[in-house]
Write a protein that binds this DNA or RNA. Structure first.
Lengths: 136, 136
DNA sequence: GCGTAAGCCTATCTAGTAGATAGGAATGAT
DNA sequence: ATCATTCCTATCTACTAGATAGGCTTACGC
């Protein structure tokens, strides 16, 4: 029930890339636009590329672009790419938690919580989110 | 999206108290039953009492009991008593997170996630959970 | 009363890790 | 060749979750 800075940065960066689609955006540009430490962001972008969400290009005029249409990338995809499981109990997947005695039923609660989170993040696409604009 | 040991312990302890209702249960008994470090548990029980969820009694034959019927205590009550907000972004409440530029719409996502979690934990009572038994 | 068993409370320790940084190697365009 | 950029690894630092220790306070029995 804690969204890490890493996760938050990742989604923000992806949305910034979405806004420039299909142009390539430099890591430095993203860092400035969303006020993210550059070195930290580079590691995050690497994860996103390895997860198949971003395409990267090196050298002069290099940068990052979405590997798939914004309509086909959900917030859940991004969160999982950088943070692993959506919900964890003491660092372990919810399904891995086992309880005994009076607490036996607790397992079901954590699983239900995870499914509730999935219900939200797996249905919000970057395309949807990028249509929401800051009102002046 | 991380359930801390403290939160997990708190719910387990509450369920153990529920099972003995309305008898008083000693902290040491709870610790043994749910395999929770005693000293750590004592701090948690203190929080639960201060939140008005537990009644405590000192001295010989002292212990803890539910301050309200199990039907009127939800998992959400317990989580909030020991952990503060249900969902946080980089340690801050979801409502406190502000975004600019392309990431503006992200705020709504985190809020929706928190509401989804609330929908689960605020409707599961200790009474319901305590009816789920371990099958032999 | 006095002793004992329990909860109450504060201070503290420790280890893990989130967050951030640095520096160089690989790559691609001009 | 050179420069700009991504790629990758190693590392640092500060925070805090998790756990511990020890003394204080309350309640009951004798």
């Amino acid at each position: 029930m804690y969204v890490s800075a890493r996760t938050d940065y990742a989604v923000r960066a992806m949305l910034s890339v979405t806004a420039e689609h299909p142009r390539l955006v430099k890591a430095a540009t993203l860092a400035a636009a969303q006020e993210i430490p550059l070195s930290f962001l580079q590691g995050i972008l690497l994860d996103l590329r390895r997860a198949g969400l971003l395409h990267s290009h090196r050298g002069v005029d290099g940068g990052y672009a979405l590997a798939r249409p914004a309509e086909e990338i959900t917030v859940g995809d991004v969160v999982r790419a950088v943070g692993g499981a959506l919900a964890t109990v003491r660092g372990l997947p919810t399904t891995h938690a086992t309880y005994h005695g009076a607490a036996f039923g607790l397992h079901d609660v954590w699983v239900a919580v995870e499914e509730a989170i999935e219900g939200v993040v797996d249905h919000k696409t970057l395309a949807e989110l990028s249509t929401i604009k800051e009102s002046a």
